[in-house]
Amino acid sequence: MEMTGSFTVDYRVEKVWSIVSDANKFAKCLPNVVSTEVNGDNFQLSFKADAKKYTSKFLGASYLSNLNIKFSAQLKEKQENKHILIQGDGSTIGLKFSLALYIDLSAQDSSTKIDWKAEIELGRMAKLFGEEVVNQAVTDVVNQTIDNLKTLLK
C-alpha cells in the first residue's frame, strides 16, 4: 500500500528539519505513544491504540478494544534540510507490518513544503481488518501526526 501527500507549514525548513531528523522529537509527533526508547538514529516506540472502530466488526471482540502496537525504526538517507527516510517494522496482535516513510522538504521563503510518501506492507493485517479499514486507520495516524508536527513547530 502506498500513500502520498503534501502540506505546507509557516516555519523555516531548518526548524522543520530539526524535528523530523531527531528521533526524540519525531516520536513526539506520533499519536498515542506510551513509551519511547531512542538510541541515536534508531528508536523503538510502543503505542496504545483505540481500535474499537476497526475491530467492532467482529462478534464479541471487545477484548480487542485497545491494541498495543510496537514499532522499531531507523532514520536513514539524511540530506540536511532536504530529505529523510524513516524505515521500520512493527507488530500488533501478532501481526507484523513494515513502513518506509519518505519525507522531502522544500523551502519556500519562510515556509516549508513537506512532501511525503508512505510505503506500507500490512501482510495479514489487511486480511484481518480489510483494506478499507486499514486505509482509514493509516489516514487517521497520518493526520494526527501532521497535526502534532504543526503543534510542535509552534
Partner: peptide
C-alpha cells in the same frame, strides 16, 4: 473471530 453480518455492528 467471526465478522458480524454485513448490516451488523457487533457493538
Amino acid at each position: 473471530l467471526i465478522a458480524a453480518g454485513e448490516n451488523d455492528d457487533s457493538r
